[in-house]
Simulated assay, not measured.
Amino acid sequence: MNIDNAIKVVLAILFFLCLADMPYGLYQFVRFAAMIGFTYLAYSANQQANKNEVFIYIALAILFQPIFKIALGRTIWNIVDVIVGIGLILSVFQNKDKN
C-alpha cells in the first residue's frame, strides 16, 4: 500500500468514527488531520499531473480546515463524512485497478 492509499484509509476511518458520539476533541483532531491529509493528497496528485484530483483535494482541505470552521450542523456533517469516507475508500480500489 502506498502512502496516498494509507492516508485515504486512515482519513476514511476517522470520518466514520465521527458518526459516533465522541468527545469534541476528536472532531477537532479529525479536521486538522483531514486538512493535512488532503493537502498532501493534493500535492501528490499535482506531482502526478492529475488536475481533477488536485481540485477535489484542495476543496476538501478547505472544507475540513479547523481555522475558519464551516458550520453545517451535525446531520449534514455526518452525511459529508460518509460521502467523503466512501469516496476515499473507492479511490483506493480504483487506484489499485490502475496499478
Rank of each mutant, 00 (worst) to 15 (best):
M1F: 09
I3E: 01
N5I: 00
N5G: 02
A6L: 03
K8G: 01
V9M: 07
V10T: 14
L11T: 00
L11W: 02
L14E: 14
F15W: 15
F15C: 13
F16Q: 08
C18F: 09
C18Y: 13
C18N: 12
D21E: 08
M22F: 09
M22I: 14
M22D: 04
P23Q: 05
P23W: 09
Y24A: 13
G25F: 15
G25S: 15
G25E: 13
L26C: 10
L26D: 08
L26V: 12
Y27T: 04
Q28L: 13
Q28P: 05
F29V: 10
F29L: 13
F29R: 09
V30A: 07
V30K: 08
V30R: 06
V30H: 04
R31K: 09
F32N: 10
F32W: 09
A34K: 13
A34Y: 14
A34D: 14
I36P: 05
G37Y: 03
F38A: 01
F38H: 02
Y40H: 08
Y40L: 11
L41R: 00
Y43K: 07
Y43D: 04
N46Q: 15
Q48I: 00
Q48K: 01
N50Y: 06
K51S: 12
K51N: 06
N52H: 15
N52K: 15
V54A: 02
V54H: 01
I56D: 13
A59Y: 14
A59E: 13
L60T: 04
I62N: 05
L63K: 00
L63G: 03
F64N: 07
F64T: 05
F64L: 08
Q65F: 03
Q65M: 05
I67E: 07
F68K: 12
K69H: 09
I70A: 08
I70N: 07
A71G: 11
L72A: 05
G73K: 08
G73N: 03
G73E: 11
T75F: 04
T75L: 01
T75G: 03
I76R: 10
V80I: 13
D81Q: 07
D81T: 01
D81S: 10
D81W: 14
V82E: 02
I83P: 14
G85C: 04
I86T: 11
I86P: 15
G87V: 06
L88I: 11
L88N: 03
I89G: 06
I89T: 09
I89C: 13
L90H: 10
L90N: 14
V92I: 11
F93I: 02
F93C: 04
F93E: 05
N95M: 00
N95Y: 03
N95D: 02
K96V: 01
D97N: 08
